[in-house]
Design a protein around this nucleic acid. Structure first.
Lengths: 220, 220
DNA sequence: ATATAATGTGTATTTCTTACACTATTAAAT
DNA sequence: ATTTAATAGTGTAAGAAATACACATTATAT
């Protein structure tokens, strides 16, 4: 037995103090005019990694984004025309970097829009389940992975970092305790630069040292 | 484009102080007479969960085992006849419970055998990659999940439990510190029973309180 | 009685976690 | 020049968890 086979992408970013997901308005039946995860069919002789890059580019205009496999969804009834197996991937991107690049390069999607995770519209297929699973996965990884730094610009303030943690964990954290913990991580670099363009005391900027991070986690 | 679609199962158990995986000797080409994960094709109108149960039964004789999805593997070259997408599942079973039930109920597999994870034979397809990923997943979950208790009999000694942790984490643990930690978990019950049939001091038996466990983890 | 093989136990040290409130700085408004 | 508004930045004490480490106890077999 054979099945159709697609890839769907959960793209997270962080903006205006909120965790956001990139959704696409479908231009095809079924679910025409519904919001959905950017995704499409895999070609016959195409490796999944290549398919992910291609589909992501066709649906969103994004290139060179690291995507992590989330899970396969293959419910018989998830698509009205019969089973279509989808492999969901997730990625984290910096809003500033991608903001102006985002536009579908194919006709399958009408428009793209960032939605805060707390305000998602009704979604096509089982895409809501896919997102829920990706949120759990993200929550589990936030303390041990580079996730927060993939969502933030290269230079960021500690308050921004805290907001990222809070939006992923979906709870408030204590400022002093958060900073104490962050100080002990050992892979953040305090810069001699300050935030600009704010109408209050400018915060110090920090950057993430990927090498130090990986050194620490490869010792185990 | 359509693809064939299979399910493969990584079945873990614990026996003779070692973590083991159940492998099947293939009776069909390609990879005839090679060891492989028990797995087979999914039917057209079959839900994945149903397919997992059916395939697991046909390949191993096991029934009513909880299986967790691991990941999809879909390399174009993983199967010599063209892409066959497989969704890998993993499960943990008690050796005593399944020992005598294990036997293929279909002709696709010749025989089944438990292999210690440290002594796996060469495997068909990309099954070694699948196992490696499942081992990582298991390692990550050992402290937060019911995994150790799924591998052990209902009544077990603290030394057995420690061996399970050690075999999953692949490192030695300190006995006194391990017991201190275990005592603080709050979901183990000390029984008034002792190990039998050993030629040395018999160890006290403990049991796992699933309800207490889930109560603790649902508070977060 | 003795040998064997594994069980079961405590303490001191360090590290991490948690709870909690005020002063400092900057830009904008007056 | 002064005030206001908004956020940045900082320390301490108490409790909890992690780590390092060695020996007496008990059941069985001979």
């Amino acid at each position: 037995m054979q099945t159709h086979f697609t890839i769907d992408c959960v793209i997270f970013s962080f903006d205006e103090g909120q965790l956001k997901i990139l959704l696409a308005e479908r231009n095809e039946y079924p679910y025409k005019e519904w919001w959905a995860l950017p995704g499409y069919f895999v070609n016959k002789y195409e490796e999944m990694e290549d398919a992910v890059s291609r589909i992501l580019f066709e649906m969103t205009g994004l290139k060179d984004i690291y995507m992590d496999q989330l899970a396969a969804f293959a419910g018989v009834k998830r698509h009205p025309e019969g089973r279509i197996l989808t492999v969901a991937y997730m990625a984290l991107v910096q809003m500033e970097e991608v903001k102006n690049k985002i536009a579908p390069t194919s006709d399958y999607m009408r428009q793209l829009k960032w939605f805060p995770v707390a305000e998602l519209p009704d979604l096509a297929f089982d895409h809501r389940d896919i997102i829920n699973l990706s949120l759990e996965r993200l929550k589990k990884s936030v303390t041990y992975s580079t996730a927060p730094y993939e969502l933030l610009p290269t230079k960021f303030t500690l308050t921004q970092l805290q907001q990222v943690y809070e939006s992923i964990l979906n709870k408030k954290l204590d400022k002093r305790n958060f900073r104490k913990k962050i100080n002990n991580l050992g892979y953040l670099k305090e810069l001699n630069e300050y935030q600009k363009g704010v109408s209050y005391r400018a915060a110090k900027l920090y950057s993430f040292d990927k090498k130090k991070f990986h050194k620490q986690f490869s010792q185990d």
